[in-house]
Design a protein around this nucleic acid. Structure first.
Length: 424
RNA sequence: GGAGAGAUGGCCGAGCGGCUGAAGGCGCUCCCCUGCUAAGGGAGUAUGGGUUAAUAGCUCAUCGAGGGUUCGAAUCCCUCUCUCUCCGCCA
């Protein structure tokens, strides 16, 4: 959520900032709403003030043994007026809240203009895409030939966009998770957390999935509703919802491995083949809760932590800065890490690292106590995948394939696979 | 699933219709006293919102959440949520 103060004082600036995202801010509607809110709020508060004063007076008169009948007569119609005014105020406030919840975050100055991923800006490349002296297969073909990856049986069990893994691939999938967790915990200073995979709507609202993106989520029929998490970002960031972090060590760094569930509504026809886009996938997620001035540094650092995993796996990748049109709703600045996939002869997203500044924190009411002022202030939140596990498996399979269709095990994974050098 | 108990400020804990945003204690901050330590004395110490140039004033809200009764609710009534104890079931 954006700063309501900024909305009141510099709405023109907010509008021009949002225009970079091609978001059309209805200034007139906001000003109309907020103007009425101001009027009604002032009225309501003065009525409340009257009520408080009168009621106090009645209390005192009664204690003094005076006749309170005339006083009661005086306040007769106050209650109705107050009730009406309060009802109107809460209606207006709800409308303003709804309006505010639909506004995306302001973009960082560095975010390039553009509409689609074609306008993203490449920042750097690491590693050289390998030259194969045979026709490289994609992970689907490799997996099916190995008889360790099965989309058809998964469709029988669930539906399209699910997969089953067996044997070496299932083990490598798990080894990737272990490598990521160990690296982030032991070398990057993250605390591993285990969290619920079903969360309530408050949590989804806090990180920005609700109210706008309900169709991307799986909900379970429960009252009140619960949602399957689309990313560990949701439960992990919500750890600090409605809390004031007292002067302890900052930033807080959390890492969690969870499954992620996405309905992939609106992505029909996209990546229908293979494990790239599934309803269920595993991810190791990095989250930092930082002091307001430190999110930029935290964002760079966290992106580096995700890159470390790609480097350990010796997977060629590039880092891109997302353009205005491609940057997510809650983010002010996002780097994507894209891994080279020989099967597609393309770089594909394997990690997305975002700086949300105070956007999520305001929705979450996540604060820290500034020792200089003694006052609570909003924190900043930063997160990123470190990495998407399913896609990491795809990348390893395609980059480490041998002519016979077997998969060489990257050095970094061997300790987690009993020293095994090949799968298949 | 059955039976019961509870939810108040950073923590403990009073309050059960009216000068209570909330006694008292602990903790914390500042000051005084003290040769050191210990003890003692004093002051302060929630959050969000409105208005405002203002972290000045004024003002509103908040005692798990939401409704209700009342001139007035932390206190009474209803619904819900969560926590704890015992029984049952269970990975």
């Amino acid at each position: 959520m954006l700063d309501p103060r900024l909305m009141r004082t510099r709405i023109d600036k907010v509008a021009s900032e949002l225009a970079r995202r091609a978001f059309d801010l209805d200034i007139a509607a906001f000003e109309e709403l907020d103007g009425r809110r101001k009027e009604i709020q002032t009225l309501t508060q003065s009525l409340q003030n009257q009520r408080n004063k009168r009621s106090n007076g009645i209390g005192r008169a009664k204690a003094a043994g005076e006749d309170i009948q005339p006083l009661l007569k005086e306040v007769e119609d106050l209650g109705d007026k107050l009730r009406a005014s309060e009802a109107e105020l809460s209606g207006l406030q709800a409308q303003i809240q709804d309006f505010m919840l639909d506004l995306p975050n302001l973009l960082d100055e560095a975010v390039p203009a553009g509409k689609t991923e074609d306008d993203n800006e490449e920042i750097s490349r690491w590693g050289e895409p390998a030259e194969f002296d045979f026709e490289a297969m994609d992970h689907v073909e490799l997996g099916i030939r190995l008889q360790q990856m099965d989309f058809e049986v998964a469709a029988k069990l669930a539906s399209a966009r699910f997969v089953t893994l067996q044997g070496g691939l299932a083990a490598m999938h798990r080894a990737l998770i272990q490598l990521m967790l160990d690296t982030h915990v032991q070398e990057h200073g993250y605390t591993e957390v285990y969290v619920p995979y079903l969360v309530n709507s408050d949590s989804m609202r806090g990180t920005g999935q609700l109210p706008k993106f309900a169709e991307d989520l799986f909900a379970v029929s429960n009252d009140p509703p619960l949602y399957l998490i689309p990313t560990a970002e949701v439960p992990v960031t919500n750890l600090v919802r409605d809390t004031i972090t007292e002067n302890g060590p900052m930033p807080l760094r959390f890492v969690a491995h969870t499954p992620c569930f996405r309905s992939e509504a609106g992505s029909y026809g996209k990546d229908v083949r293979g494990m790239i886009r599934q309803h269920q996938f595993e991810k190791v997620e990095l989250v930092q809760i930082v002091r307001p001035g430190e999110s930029e540094a935290g964002h760079e650092e966290l992106t580096g932590h995700a890159e470390t995993i790609l480097q350990r796996l010796e997977l060629p990748y590039r880092k891109v800065l997302l353009c205005a049109g491609d940057t997510g709703f809650s983010s002010s600045k996002t780097y994507d890490l894209e891994v080279w996939l020989p099967g597609q002869k393309k770089y594909r997203e394997i990690s997305s690292c975002s700086n949300f500044r105070d956007f999520q924190a305001r929705r979450l009411s996540a604060r820290w106590r500034n020792p200089e002022t003694g006052k609570p202030e909003l924190v900043h939140t930063v997160n990123g995948s470190g990495l998407a596990v399913g896609r990491a498996l795809v990348a390893v399979m395609e980059n480490y394939q041998k002519p016979d269709g077997c998969i060489r095990v990257p050095e970094a994974l061997r300790p987690y696979l009993g020293g095994r050098e090949t799968i298949g």
